[in-house]
Simulated scan of single mutants.
Amino acid sequence: MKNNLQDTREKRGVRNSHNIISIIFLSLVSIMALSFSIFLLVKNARLQREEAAFKKELEAINGGGFYTAEEAQKLADDAAREAREGAEDTLREDFRKKLESGDTAIGVVRDLFPGEIVVNGSGRYFFFPISDEIEHHGFAETDFELSDNGFIKYVGDKDLDIKNGIDVSRFQGDIDWEKVAASGIDYAMIRAGYRGTGEGKLVEDDKFVDNIEGAIENGIDVGVYFYSQAVNKKEALEEAQKLLDMIEPYNIEYPVVIDIESAESDEARTATLSSDVYEENAKAFCDTISAAGYKPMIYGNVKSFSLLMDAADVDDYDIWIAYYGNPQYYPYHFNMWQYTSAGKVKGIEGDVDLNICITEY
């Protein structure tokens, strides 16, 4: 009897414990549900306040209405168009001011693309990215200044012995070399000859002998150059041999140069020459000159070393760059710089090309 009573009490105690646990669990669930409901109410109220504030801002912006997605896109497009038109107006104004101040069109275009070499030819502009794989000259824009006598001088911090030079041909007529020597000219590059742009005949410059002998007799060091119109390697070798024969009697201190330029004529025999052929001709000429014991060099302008030839492919040779202006635009290494075709030197009537040499020969 006692055992039955005890069992009944134990069962009742278990049921009571279960009931208490259930009540506690349900209470916790109710509290959590209530808390979540309160959270949602607070969140909803906050969102409503933010929405109201946002609507108020939009109303202030557009005068009381709202922008649809299409209207917002139109506003963005209009703003972009106005920005472009403003930029175009500014660009046109800059163009106009630069051209009115004397800048050339090519100069203005070059200013717009500082990371590229820009050249023009055949009515088109060509753009060549400046390469870090080719040796750069390393001069700053302020390293050179124009002196009162019209000569460029070096004012940078490198230890350079700059030499002043001229290059001459029959176009300078009779030259008083004694006066030239007294005017501060250290060296002269003498045109020995040229190949015709039409039939391709090799021609000696009319003033070659007078010029080279007059310069040497007055203590001016000389180099020589030959204007090339070779259309293949064979003709380039002919030009090199012609030049070697002409300079054999003289003491040549400065380089022996192949002059590679665009003939600027659709009728020229080199008008359709590829860059590969130009480069092959230049290398054949220079290697022949070097084998004969002279220092070879390639003359050209910025177009020559970008459009006619790849500067990287002739980087092993000394370079004589023609660029009229300061600072120097051509970014790669050079040994001589022809900086004007309108120089004035005593002993020469009219204009003459002026040069500097930054290499000791």
Rank of each mutant, 00 (worst) to 15 (best):
M1P: 07
N3E: 12
L5V: 10
D7L: 14
R9D: 03
K11R: 10
R15V: 15
R15Q: 14
N16P: 06
N19V: 13
I21L: 15
I24G: 10
S30F: 14
I38H: 10
F39P: 00
L40E: 12
Q48N: 13
E50Y: 08
E51V: 03
E51I: 05
A52V: 00
A53Y: 11
K56Q: 14
E57K: 15
I61F: 12
I61E: 06
E70C: 11
L75I: 14
A79F: 04
R84H: 04
E85N: 10
E88T: 07
D89K: 15
K98V: 00
L99V: 09
L99E: 03
S101C: 09
T104I: 05
A105L: 15
A105D: 07
G115I: 02
G115M: 02
F128C: 00
I130R: 01
I130A: 08
E133I: 07
H136Y: 00
A140P: 03
D143N: 05
L146E: 14
F151G: 01
D159A: 14
D161R: 08
I162H: 04
I162C: 09
N164S: 11
A181P: 01
A188M: 02
M189P: 02
R191C: 00
E199T: 12
K201D: 05
E204M: 14
D206K: 14
K207A: 13
I212P: 01
E213A: 07
N218I: 02
I220N: 01
V224L: 04
S228D: 03
A230T: 06
N232Y: 12
N232L: 03
A236C: 04
K242E: 10
L244A: 11
L244N: 12
D245C: 10
M246V: 07
N251E: 15
I252R: 03
I252C: 07
V257K: 01
I258D: 07
E261Q: 11
S262R: 03
A263S: 14
D266M: 13
A268E: 06
R269A: 02
V277C: 09
E279R: 11
N281G: 11
A282C: 06
A292S: 15
K295R: 13
S304R: 00
M309D: 02
A311K: 08
V314Y: 08
V314D: 07
D316G: 03
D318E: 09
D318F: 08
W320K: 00
N326C: 10
P327M: 10
P327A: 10
Y330R: 06
P331V: 09
F334H: 11
W337H: 09
T340F: 13
I348V: 03
E349K: 08
G350F: 13
G350L: 11
I356D: 07
E360N: 05
